[in-house]
Simulated assay, not measured.
Amino acid sequence: MRPRAVVFAYHNVGVRCLQVLLARGVDVALVVTHEDSPSETIWFGSVAAVAAEHGIEVIKPADPNDDALRDAVRRAQPDFIFSFYYRHMLPTDVLALAPRGAYNMHGSLLPKYRGRVPTNWAVLNGEAETGATLHEMTAKPDAGSIVGQTSVPILPDDTAQQVFDKVTVAAEQTLWRVLPALLAGEAPCLPNDTARGSYFGGRKPEDGRIDWSQSGERVYNLIRAVAPPYPGAFTDIGEVRFIVAQARLAPPGVRIGAPRTNLPPGLHVSDNAFLGVCGDARVIAISELWHALDGKPAVITPAEFLKLTHTSPHS
């Protein structure tokens, strides 16, 4: 008899890990996912669509504490519960409905970066690697024993989306590798020493505000960590908001024209190009800048920037 599972899932990791379960012969009786928010840019795959393709029942409760959700899980009679980038903590009484265990796929190398948006935090903090970890679910977030994990590199110019794409593959590889042992009741149970790790909360769009007095490395890491399709790192000049969509940090000591070395920290136009000057005099070469007039971001040229800000170019 095939092992039976209820899957809580969303986003690309949810899509790929659900497909791994199906490819490994797991009977997925129910998929629990989210309604897409009209205020969010949906750049990722649909778990609900994959479930529908396979004839799997899908529900989208707003509250994981809803009694109707408990009833649906109970009716599904799962051996296992899996959570793949589902955005809510699951109550312990729901987890207890799976006699063979409940497991979550987290987008970091636990115990590091427990909590929310771990990929963005890892990029923001200048980490050189991250990964994906499958672990047992407990009452505390990302605190259960580790079943398996896979690491991926974070290159110096990687954006959070590029790293997230790698983490998605790492999640798929991790689940594919450990699932046979998990289904056989022979999976490893490795310590997850939260005292040696770190916990991070969610991030809001306002957290993308650039402080040009910070070091070039810190500013660049912020730009990479929230680059589109995330809300983007931004700076305000007057009443106009500018979003740095694509950029690169110039090497230390690099001069791109003598006048630039005298510019104060902030966003500037010089030689018909955008650049950001940071508190340690490092320069960020900006290849794509957006303005957010009327709440609708659009690419802007240096000439349009100068007109909007009523500033003079540096040449």
Score class of each variant (00 low, 15 high):
Q161W: 15
N262D: 12
A122Y: 12
Q149I: 03
Q161F: 14
E35K: 15
P99F: 02
V163Q: 04
I59G: 01
D280V: 06
P180Y: 00
E53S: 09
W290G: 00
R2Q: 15
A273H: 11
L134G: 00
A247L: 01
R224N: 11
G126L: 05
D193S: 09
R255T: 13
D142S: 00
L308K: 06
D211C: 10
Q214V: 04
N125I: 01
A227D: 10
G107H: 02
E172W: 08
V15N: 03
I146M: 08
F80V: 11
D158I: 08
A5R: 12
G238I: 04
T311H: 12
L263Q: 01
I154C: 01
L183E: 00
G276Q: 04
W121I: 14
N12I: 00
N104D: 06
L306W: 05
E172M: 09
Y220S: 07
A96N: 04
S213E: 14
V254A: 14
V73L: 05
A298K: 12
A187S: 11
P141H: 10
V47I: 11
A227I: 11
P313H: 14
I243E: 10
A139W: 05
G25Y: 04
L293Q: 09
G232S: 12
D66W: 07
V47W: 08
E57Y: 12
A273D: 03
E57W: 03
A170W: 01
D93N: 11
G55S: 07
R203S: 09
E40K: 15
P205G: 11
P3D: 11
G25H: 02
L124R: 13
R114G: 15
S315L: 15
A128Q: 14
L21C: 00
I237M: 06
S145H: 01
T130C: 02
C189A: 12
D271C: 07
G14Y: 10
R100E: 13
T311V: 02
R70G: 14
P259M: 09
L182K: 05
G257L: 02
V13C: 13
P205L: 11
L69C: 06
S270E: 01
E35P: 04
A128Y: 00
P251H: 08
G295H: 11
T33Y: 01
R218H: 10
P180V: 01
A68L: 07
A273F: 05
R70D: 08
L69H: 09
D165L: 07
C17D: 08
Y103L: 08
